[in-house]
């Protein structure tokens, strides 16, 4: 483990502890928020316990990010092979054009295609999360030193061995950086999923905006903000570890 990782581990662990505490235990919320907003009737979001909202959020982001990373990796590998190279320019262009799409628009467009709820949110998150992984996979695999690949084939490795034992391990830091970007964006977009009935930590925020209850807004916003920073930190450590290993 690198020095930098060791240094970020402690604050990250503290942050994780805070997140778990605020998810599982309602009393601190009630105490703080009823002092800050003495005029509010209800200060804690009543419709679902936070642990359920967090679980929904993790399920949304987890399933879509795993799907997106797998698919992005596979497509990225396919278009950098000899037989798929014809697709590389078009895929590259589509990926960079796709990233000018606003995430909220992708989410909104999934609704007419699939309807409201969990499924369209996962589909939108999947589609949008695909692009950073795809771009970084292509970039990672294409910037490898050709001499290394030649040496590998000189050692008698077959293409599959070169891919799994040389190319992917060498490109992994760049690929993981793409996974990190994709997952963090997905956490933010999943928050918007509450507007199309997907559940998750966006629910108290939306409920607070509609019902003019700032306490609900703060609850959702603090939890989802902590969650995003936490996931970003953990994936940062993982990708840096890979870079040295």
């Amino acid at each position: 483990m690198t020095d930098r990782n060791r240094r970020t581990l402690i604050p990250l662990a503290a942050l994780a502890g805070l997140f778990v505490l605020l998810t599982a235990w309602m009393d601190p919320w009630r105490m703080v928020l009823s002092t800050v907003f003495p005029t509010l009737d209800k200060v804690v979001y009543p419709l679902a316990p936070f642990r359920r909202l967090v679980a929904e959020h993790i399920l949304l982001v987890g399933s879509s990010s795993i799907l997106a990373s797998t698919a992005g990796l596979c497509i990225g590998i396919a278009v950098t092979r000899q037989w798929g190279r014809e697709f590389l320019p078009a895929v590259n262009a589509l990926a960079s054009m796709g990233q000018t799409f606003p995430p909220v628009a992708v989410l909104a467009l999934a609704v007419p295609a699939v309807g409201f709820g969990f499924k369209p949110t996962v589909i939108a998150l999947f589609l949008y999360g695909l692009l950073p992984v795809l771009r970084n996979t292509i970039a990672g695999l294409q910037t490898l030193d050709p001499a290394v690949l030649e040496a590998a084939s000189g050692m008698g490795m077959n293409p599959l061995q070169i891919l799994t034992l040389v190319e992917i391990p060498l490109a992994l830091p760049v690929i993981m950086a793409g996974v990190r970007i994709s997952t963090v964006i997905n956490i933010g977009t999943a928050t918007l999923g509450a507007t199309i009935g997907a559940g998750g930590l966006g629910k108290p925020i939306i409920a607070g905006l509609i019902g003019e209850n700032p306490a609900y807004i703060i609850e959702g916003a603090v939890l989802v903000g902590l969650f995003a920073i936490l996931v970003d930190g953990v994936l940062g450590i993982v990708s840096r570890d890979r870079a040295d290993g």
Binding site: G188, T191, I205, G208, P214, V222, V224
Partner: peptide, 20 residues
């Protein structure tokens, strides 16, 4: 970097009571 990580809806949300 940390601020960039915070979801947009969360940042919008936190600013509302703060500005109010």
């Amino acid at each position: 970097n940390t601020l960039q990580t915070v979801p947009s809806l969360a940042l919008f949300g936190i600013l509302i009571p703060l500005l109010a």
